[in-house]
Computed example of a mutant assay.
Amino acid sequence: MAPPSKRRPGFSRRAQYGLFLSYVVAAGGVILALLLLIVAVIDPRGFNGLKGLALDLTAPVSSAGRGAVRGIGDGIDSVNAYFFAASQNEALRSELAQRRRAAIEAQALRQENRRLKALLGISQRAETAVATGRVVGSTFDSARRLATIDVGGSDGVVIGQPVRSVDGLVGRVVETGRSAARVLLVTDGGNSVPIVLARDGTPAFATGRGDGTIELRTLEVGQSPFRRGDVVFTSGVGGIYPPGIPVARVLKVTRDLTIAQPLADPGKLDFAIVLPAYMPQANAPIAPTAPTAPPPAPAPPRP
C-alpha cells in the first residue's frame, strides 16, 4: 500500500489559509465547548444567564425565519386555492344543497308532528271518533268536490258520517270501500251545513259553490249580519254534523251575497278524523203519564 502523501495542499496561499482557519475554528469550538461545560458545572446560574443571552440573540433570527416560512406557506396555499377554486366551490355548493335539503326535511317533520299532535288532542277530546286516516287525494277541477281517505268499512266508516281535520270541518262520507272512503267536501254544491255565527250566534246555512268557496245564507231575509273575517261553526241542527266544529271564515260581503273560505283547505290536508253521525237529543224528556183507573164493573140486573 502506498504511503499517504505528505505534500502540502498546493502552493496557493488561499488554500493554506483556509485550511489553517478551519483548524483554528475547530480548536476554538472545542475550547468554547469545554469552557461552557466548566461554567455549567461550576456556576449553573451564570450558565443559565448565558443561555438566556443566547436565546435573546437568536430569537429575532428565529422570528424572521418563521415569518419567511409562513409567508412561503401562505403563498403556496394561495396558489393551490387559485388552481383548485372550482373544485372547492363545487364541494361547497354540494354541501350547502345537502344542508338545505336537511333543513327542509326537518321543517316538514316539525310541521307534520305539530299536526299529528293536534289530531291526537282532538281524538282524545272526542272519545267517540270512529277512525283517523290520511287524505290520499282530492278533486279541484271537477264539478264535484270530493276527497279520498285511507280508512273504510273495515275501520267502522259508514256513509253519512262527518269528517273533520285539525283546522275545521271537511265534509261527510258519501262512499265507502273496505279500506278507503270518499268524502263530499263542504265546498261541493250539493253539501249544505247548518251553521251559527261565532260572534252573535246567528243561525245560517253554508252551501258549497263548487269553486273552492262557500256561500253563507241566513234564515231570515234582511241585512246580512256577516262581516269580513267572521268565523262560523256547525250548529248541530238537523243532525249529522256535531256542533262547535269550525267551518269557514268570511272573505267577502255584498248586498246579496256572502262568500267564505273553508278553514280546512282540501289542498293542504294531511290527516282527517271520521266522527259518528250526530244525533241531537230532545230538549226535555217527555213526562210519563199516570196510569188510569179501570172502569167500574156494571151493576147486576134487577130481578
Rank of each mutant, 00 (worst) to 15 (best):
A126F: 02
S87G: 01
P300W: 01
L55K: 05
V151A: 05
A143N: 15
T202A: 15
F84R: 03
T202H: 14
L55Q: 04
I245G: 01
Y23P: 00
R255L: 11
V24E: 07
P298G: 09
A290P: 12
F83N: 03
A27N: 04
R182W: 04
L34W: 09
P288V: 07
G267I: 00
G229H: 11
K117M: 14
L116N: 06
P225T: 12
I159N: 11
D265P: 00
T176D: 04
G222Y: 04
L55G: 09
A126W: 01
A2Q: 08
G49Q: 10
R217C: 02
N113Q: 13
G28M: 07
S87L: 07
L185G: 02
M1C: 02
F11D: 14
A290S: 15
R255K: 12
G49C: 00
V158H: 09
F20L: 14
E127Q: 06
A277I: 01
K51P: 00
A40T: 05
G210S: 05
P295E: 08
P225D: 13
A129W: 09
A277P: 10
G73F: 05
L57D: 01
R249E: 14
G189N: 09
T207D: 11
V237Y: 13
A118F: 02
G189W: 06
E215A: 15
G156Q: 09
D74L: 14
L116G: 00
L251W: 03
A282M: 10
V151C: 04
G67W: 02
R7D: 09
E175S: 06
K117R: 15
I240T: 15
K6R: 11
L120E: 13
P288K: 13
L53H: 03
L37E: 04
G267P: 01
R227T: 05
R14V: 15
L197R: 15
E105C: 00
V24S: 03
S142A: 13
L53G: 10
R114P: 00
Q124N: 06
I122Y: 10
L257T: 15
A204R: 12
S78P: 00
R227M: 10
P203Q: 08
P288A: 14
